[in-house]
Protein backbone atom coordinates (compact mmCIF):
# COMPACT_ATOMS: atom_id res chain seq x y z
CA UNK A 1 0.00 0.00 0.00
CA UNK A 2 2.76 2.43 0.92
CA UNK A 3 4.76 1.72 -2.23
CA UNK A 4 1.68 2.48 -4.29
CA UNK A 5 1.22 5.79 -2.50
CA UNK A 6 4.88 6.66 -2.97
CA UNK A 7 4.91 6.13 -6.69
CA UNK A 8 1.60 7.96 -7.07
CA UNK A 9 2.92 10.90 -5.09
CA UNK A 10 6.03 11.14 -7.26
CA UNK A 11 4.11 11.27 -10.50
CA UNK A 12 1.72 13.87 -9.11
CA UNK A 13 4.65 16.11 -8.20
CA UNK A 14 6.10 15.76 -11.67
CA UNK A 15 2.81 16.60 -13.27
CA UNK A 16 2.47 19.59 -10.96
CA UNK A 17 5.87 20.90 -11.98
CA UNK A 18 4.94 20.62 -15.63
CA UNK A 19 1.62 22.31 -15.12
CA UNK A 20 3.02 25.14 -13.04
CA UNK A 21 4.77 26.34 -16.14
CA UNK A 22 1.36 27.31 -17.54
CA UNK A 23 0.31 29.10 -14.38
CA UNK A 24 0.84 32.62 -15.63
CA UNK A 25 -1.71 32.12 -18.36
CA UNK A 26 -4.51 31.88 -15.84
CA UNK A 27 -3.61 34.81 -13.60
CA UNK A 28 -6.21 37.51 -13.44
CA UNK A 29 -4.25 40.58 -12.47
CA UNK A 30 -6.71 43.26 -11.57
CA UNK A 31 -4.64 45.86 -9.79
CA UNK A 32 -1.03 45.45 -10.72
CA UNK A 33 1.42 47.78 -12.38
CA UNK A 34 1.58 47.00 -16.09
CA UNK A 35 4.78 45.52 -17.53
CA UNK A 36 6.53 48.82 -17.91
CA UNK A 37 4.84 52.16 -17.59
CA UNK A 38 7.26 53.77 -19.95
CA UNK A 39 9.90 51.73 -21.70
CA UNK A 40 13.01 53.75 -21.10
CA UNK A 41 15.39 52.10 -23.49
CA UNK A 42 15.40 53.24 -27.08
CA UNK A 43 12.85 51.49 -29.19
CA UNK A 44 13.97 51.30 -32.77
CA UNK A 45 11.44 50.88 -35.50
CA UNK A 46 13.95 50.66 -38.30
CA UNK A 47 16.42 47.86 -38.91
CA UNK A 48 18.82 50.36 -40.49
CA UNK A 49 21.59 51.55 -38.15
CA UNK A 50 24.87 53.29 -38.90
CA UNK A 51 27.97 51.45 -37.80
CA UNK A 52 27.82 48.19 -35.86
CA UNK A 53 24.35 47.23 -34.85
CA UNK A 54 23.43 47.94 -31.25
CA UNK A 55 21.59 44.97 -29.85
CA UNK A 56 18.42 46.34 -28.44
CA UNK A 57 17.34 44.89 -25.17
CA UNK A 58 14.14 43.11 -25.84
CA UNK A 59 11.54 43.87 -23.28
CA UNK A 60 8.95 41.17 -23.45
CA UNK A 61 5.43 41.90 -22.53
CA UNK A 62 4.51 40.00 -19.42
CA UNK A 63 0.96 40.05 -20.71
CA UNK A 64 1.94 38.00 -23.76
CA UNK A 65 1.16 34.68 -22.15
CA UNK A 66 -1.67 35.97 -20.01
CA UNK A 67 -5.03 34.87 -21.32
CA UNK A 68 -6.96 37.45 -19.32
CA UNK A 69 -4.91 40.33 -20.70
CA UNK A 70 -5.28 39.14 -24.28
CA UNK A 71 -9.01 38.77 -23.80
CA UNK A 72 -9.29 42.25 -22.32
CA UNK A 73 -7.21 43.49 -25.26
CA UNK A 74 -9.77 41.94 -27.58
CA UNK A 75 -12.58 43.81 -25.89
CA UNK A 76 -10.64 47.07 -25.87
CA UNK A 77 -9.88 46.61 -29.57
CA UNK A 78 -13.63 46.60 -30.18
CA UNK A 79 -14.43 49.37 -27.72
CA UNK A 80 -11.81 51.80 -29.00
CA UNK A 81 -12.79 51.07 -32.59
CA UNK A 82 -9.43 49.83 -33.80
CA UNK A 83 -11.54 47.84 -36.25
CA UNK A 84 -12.48 51.09 -37.89
CA UNK A 85 -9.15 51.12 -39.70
CA UNK A 86 -7.70 47.67 -39.13
CA UNK A 87 -10.94 45.68 -39.44
CA UNK A 88 -10.62 42.51 -37.37
CA UNK A 89 -6.97 42.14 -38.28
CA UNK A 90 -7.39 42.11 -42.03
CA UNK A 91 -6.79 45.81 -42.47
CA UNK A 92 -8.62 48.40 -44.53
CA UNK A 93 -7.58 51.98 -44.27
CA UNK A 94 -4.92 50.75 -41.92
CA UNK A 95 -2.50 47.91 -42.50
CA UNK A 96 -3.47 44.35 -41.59
CA UNK A 97 -2.38 43.25 -38.18
CA UNK A 98 -2.57 39.51 -38.59
CA UNK A 99 0.04 39.11 -41.29
CA UNK A 100 3.80 38.93 -40.88
CA UNK A 101 4.58 42.40 -42.23
CA UNK A 102 5.29 44.85 -39.44
CA UNK A 103 6.12 48.29 -40.70
CA UNK A 104 7.25 49.51 -37.33
CA UNK A 105 8.25 46.22 -35.75
CA UNK A 106 6.44 43.49 -33.90
CA UNK A 107 8.29 43.56 -30.59
CA UNK A 108 5.97 44.47 -27.70
CA UNK A 109 7.76 47.76 -27.00
CA UNK A 110 7.59 48.70 -30.67
CA UNK A 111 3.87 48.08 -30.88
CA UNK A 112 3.41 49.95 -27.61
CA UNK A 113 5.24 52.91 -29.10
CA UNK A 114 3.16 52.74 -32.27
CA UNK A 115 -0.06 52.94 -30.29
CA UNK A 116 1.11 55.60 -27.86
CA UNK A 117 2.97 57.85 -30.29
CA UNK A 118 0.92 57.35 -33.40
CA UNK A 119 2.45 56.72 -36.81
CA UNK A 120 2.49 58.53 -40.14
CA UNK A 121 -0.34 58.04 -42.62
CA UNK A 122 -3.14 57.90 -40.14
CA UNK A 123 -2.33 56.01 -36.93
CA UNK A 124 -3.53 58.30 -34.14
CA UNK A 125 -1.47 58.89 -31.04
CA UNK A 126 -3.30 57.34 -28.13
CA UNK A 127 -0.87 58.34 -25.43
CA UNK A 128 -2.64 60.09 -22.59
CA UNK A 129 -5.93 58.70 -23.84
CA UNK A 130 -5.66 55.01 -23.27
CA UNK A 131 -4.22 54.19 -19.84
CA UNK A 132 -0.94 52.31 -19.88
CA UNK A 133 -2.09 48.91 -18.73
CA UNK A 134 -4.79 48.93 -21.37
CA UNK A 135 -2.20 49.74 -24.05
CA UNK A 136 -0.19 46.72 -22.99
CA UNK A 137 -3.31 44.57 -23.18
CA UNK A 138 -3.87 45.84 -26.71
CA UNK A 139 -0.25 45.08 -27.52
CA UNK A 140 -0.73 41.51 -26.33
CA UNK A 141 -3.90 41.16 -28.35
CA UNK A 142 -2.39 42.59 -31.52
CA UNK A 143 0.51 40.20 -31.23
CA UNK A 144 -1.91 37.36 -30.69
CA UNK A 145 -3.64 38.19 -33.94
CA UNK A 146 -0.41 37.49 -35.77
CA UNK A 147 0.24 34.33 -33.82
CA UNK A 148 3.15 35.74 -31.82
CA UNK A 149 1.73 34.81 -28.42
CA UNK A 150 1.50 31.28 -26.99
CA UNK A 151 -1.35 29.41 -28.60
CA UNK A 152 -2.98 28.38 -25.36
CA UNK A 153 -3.33 31.96 -24.14
CA UNK A 154 -5.32 33.08 -27.17
CA UNK A 155 -9.02 32.50 -27.22
CA UNK A 156 -10.50 31.07 -30.37
CA UNK A 157 -12.96 33.80 -31.23
CA UNK A 158 -14.89 36.75 -29.86
CA UNK A 159 -18.61 36.64 -29.29
CA UNK A 160 -19.54 39.01 -32.04
CA UNK A 161 -19.66 38.84 -35.77
CA UNK A 162 -16.76 37.99 -38.01
CA UNK A 163 -14.63 35.58 -36.13
CA UNK A 164 -11.01 36.57 -36.06
CA UNK A 165 -9.20 33.87 -37.94
CA UNK A 166 -5.98 35.40 -36.73
CA UNK A 167 -6.58 34.48 -33.15
CA UNK A 168 -7.11 30.81 -33.67
CA UNK A 169 -4.43 29.53 -35.94
CA UNK A 170 -3.95 25.83 -36.36
CA UNK A 171 -0.71 26.28 -38.26
CA UNK A 172 1.68 29.09 -37.39
CA UNK A 173 2.29 31.61 -40.21
CA UNK A 174 5.56 31.37 -42.12
CA UNK A 175 8.08 33.82 -40.65
Amino acid sequence: MSSRCGSARGSVLLAAAVLLAGCDREQRRFSEAPPSASPSEIVRVSALQPGPAIIASSSSNRYDGNAYAISQGQRLYTWFNCAGCHANGGGGMGPPLMDTTWIYGSAPAQIYRSIVEGRPNGMPSWGGRIPNEQVWMLVAYVRSMAGLTPADARSSRPDHMMALPGSQILVEPQR
Binding site: E26, S71, P158
Partner: peptide, 13 residues
Protein backbone atom coordinates in the same frame (compact mmCIF):
# COMPACT_ATOMS: atom_id res chain seq x y z
CA UNK B 1 -22.60 30.49 -22.21
CA UNK B 2 -21.64 33.13 -23.28
CA UNK B 3 -19.86 33.55 -19.93
CA UNK B 4 -18.01 30.26 -20.35
CA UNK B 5 -17.41 30.88 -24.03
CA UNK B 6 -14.09 31.83 -25.59
CA UNK B 7 -14.42 35.57 -25.12
CA UNK B 8 -15.61 35.86 -21.54
CA UNK B 9 -13.60 33.07 -19.93
CA UNK B 10 -10.08 33.42 -21.25
CA UNK B 11 -7.52 30.73 -20.64
CA UNK B 12 -8.19 27.06 -20.15
CA UNK B 13 -10.45 26.97 -17.12
Amino acid sequence: VPLSGPQYTPGKR
